[in-house]
Design a binder for these strands. Structure first.
Lengths: 398, 398
DNA sequence: CAGGTTTAGTTCGGACATCGACGAAAAGAG
DNA sequence: CTCTTTTCGTCGATGTCCGAACTAAACCTG
């Protein structure tokens, strides 16, 4: 007979987190996303009794996570007290660390960036150096905006590497010598007494883009073409797919025959070796015979053409992903979207030609709406969702 | 400022299904999967009080879904009353319809196949003919095994086509003329007064394989190489990924350069056109100059070589999927696994050479453990999980 | 074989969650 | 000012879940 079947059970038993916390978390997220702004509205949306809503809202107000203020009247009856995440509930520190540059930000819970800054982060200098600079920069930003460092609720870090999300540790990063297994969370926890979340940078961008759109646009793929080529995956239910080892979305080293460029990973024919933005700049520099980037950047027309070609090659890979994953939306991001029109045209032409009509009929291919802020926005999203999760709420309520 | 962010909310509000039903469903699934066989064990596994377990078990016993019988004593204390899904609770009709042949089965809830049968199903003859034959066959099987047709609780159908799972309708099947948008569920509901689930056949196989393994082996990819090449996707949390249009996993029409075979989809260079089992048989037939399949099947050695080559080409595609999806396990199935060793060797050699070590370090590439029963087993799994879901339970309890 | 030990399952009262009903508060309409 | 409308809080009724005490059914010991 058959071995018996391990029916689809949740990985955590439902009874582990209390029902009360689940409800509070759900209410908090409804408020945070703006889908409900008053107690009655929450009751309508959730189908719960108003009294139940009030009851579960009370602890959220008590710990100051949600604030209420008077609404200016205008409608008929008693004006509701408008609910929102309390901007004063604390701040989230966010670092989107790229290979060469990083973007730091301080965000409050009211969806505002209090401060934003771009710094040099040459990851090749090693984690000790880079993270120390990030910490110093954070402290300076906090001081400048007079945010007490005690109000830091969470630190979220994006790294251009595969990350084991549970432990927050980079695993075998191809381009970051010295970062393998480096305990990034500990390095921040010495300075800030707050939990630290670490994830792949492209995952964060994908999350940011996904949350700017209606849930019907999931499953969503975010494809970033800059120095490297990577991809973030958001599934049907809005969750990031990180894969078994945190390495999902690493499409830069997909091999496309017909090219013999040597990739930094050592292999030959990786898409990243000839269709990434870095590769294009190299090519432009070489063609113009001059000294690389400077002169090449000037030659807009030539670059446009190269982007268009590269976008087509990326489109070949995307067409394959469309077959396999059948997403509702493909979002294009990364530095190559400086030439957005060319990029879009290049990708679209190939995808709609190659892929079967069924999978492309309702597929939309778009440029990133968040641009180079996708990473920081996604990090804030991850942070807010973590704080508002049942586990996050429990830790706040002691 | 930013548009506000639609935080990761569940698609259905948690308050919609009653907490009680959720618990009953969870208990039933624990019993069904054999993870708990008595009330006390359920209490230990779930962390609930024994009294609570008893309380929620009562309705499941009342409707006859779960049965208890005496355990033979042997341990110290009072022997537990052993719980199991009641085999007499009803049967599930299962049809795994392939392009040429279909596999029908009657399963009870006690993980036993009461009857199993393979029939000719030339899907090109159209849905009316094929489904009528399936229905007739089902009725005959029921009669032969003296199962009253009133005890049919569910019908599960797998089709070699993209299927919109919610409505149970095939959408734009490439190889099934006349099936587009055909209302398959209605066609069975006239005969059997039971819900009908329809899904892609490869999805069912993937589900079957996934449920035969520990949950730690998800995310899992099931790759089927027969007449066509397809792929089923099970995510980290054990759910099938069906994509935005139910077309996910359709990797047969991924284009691999360097081949100019014309595919039945009309395009050139589809992997399916030269590396599927059908293509191999064609090639073997052509090489031996004789009349195709018959003489070719005889020449084992030649076929082995062709399988090995084709497996390498499929491996190129799988390597790409490994980069993108980073699964924990790849399961190989389909008729090509008749030559399992060659297939495994061909796929492994390419995957472990092409893909980055990070994604392959813990990846295991295996042959299907269920063989040609994967589809029917997966269909039973889908059916049992549907019946034991909170929605399914509610309908049984009136 | 009587009584102790161990494990399983049931019963029951209390703590807590959720609901609906009622009433108070706060605005506009007439 | 009074009526209507909408929001929100309070309170008792109902239902869920738990733990403690109790019963049931086995084995072990002497």
């Amino acid at each position: 007979m058959l071995p018996w079947l391990n029916l689809g059970l949740p990985r955590t038993t439902p009874a582990q987190t209390s029902h009360a916390l689940n409800l509070s978390s759900y209410l908090a997220r409804l408020v945070a996303s703006g889908q409900a702004t008053s107690r009655s509205e929450l009751a309508r949306v959730t189908g719960l009794a108003r009294s139940t809503v009030s009851e579960h809202l009370a602890p959220l107000l008590r710990i100051g996570l949600i604030a209420e203020h008077e609404a200016e009247a205008g409608a008929r009856g008693r004006p509701p007290s408008v609910l929102s995440l309390n901007p004063q509930a604390g701040v989230i520190l966010v670092a989107d660390i790229g290979a060469a540059r990083g973007r730091l930000a301080i965000a409050d819970f009211g969806q505002h960036f209090l401060a934003e800054r771009s710094i040099r982060t040459d990851v090749a200098r090693g984690p000790d150096t880079v993270l120390a600079e990030v910490r110093a920069e954070f402290l300076q930003m906090l001081a400048e905006h007079q945010v007490p460092s005690g109000s830091v609720r969470l630190v979220v870090v994006g790294l251009p590497a595969p990350v084991d999300f549970a432990s927050g540790v980079p695993v075998r990063p191809p381009i970051m010598p010295g970062w393998d297994n480096y305990p990034v969370p500990e390095s921040f926890q010495e300075t800030f007494a707050a939990p630290v979340l670490v994830d792949n940078d492209v995952n964060l961008m994908a999350l940011g883009e996904a949350r700017c759109r209606p849930a019907s646009q999931c499953p969503l793929l975010y494809v970033k073409a800059s120095t490297g080529i990577g991809c973030g995956i958001v599934t049907h239910d809005g969750q990031l797919h990180r894969g078994a080892d945190g390495a999902a979305g690493d499409i830069g080293h997909v091999r496309v025959p017909g090219h013999d460029a040597v990739c930094r990973c050592g292999a030959v024919g990786c898409i990243e070796a000839f269709a990434s933005y870095a590769a294009i700049l190299r090519k432009a520099g070489a063609d113009s015979g001059g000294n690389a980037v400077q002169s090449a950047e000037a030659n807009e027309a030539q670059l446009s053409g190269l982007v268009r070609t590269a976008a087509g090659e990326i489109g070949e890979v995307i067409a394959m992903l469309v077959h396999f994953f059948n997403p509702a939306v493909i979002v294009l991001g990364g530095r190559m979207t400086q030439y957005g029109d060319e990029m879009l045209a290049g990708v679209r032409s190939v995808v709609y030609r190659r892929a079967l009509p069924l999978a492309t009929r309702r597929l939309s291919v778009e440029l990133s709406t968040l641009g180079n802020r996708a990473g920081t926005v996604g990090a804030v999203v991850l942070g807010v969702e973590h704080v508002l999760s049942p586990q996050g709420l429990r830790s706040m309520m002691l």
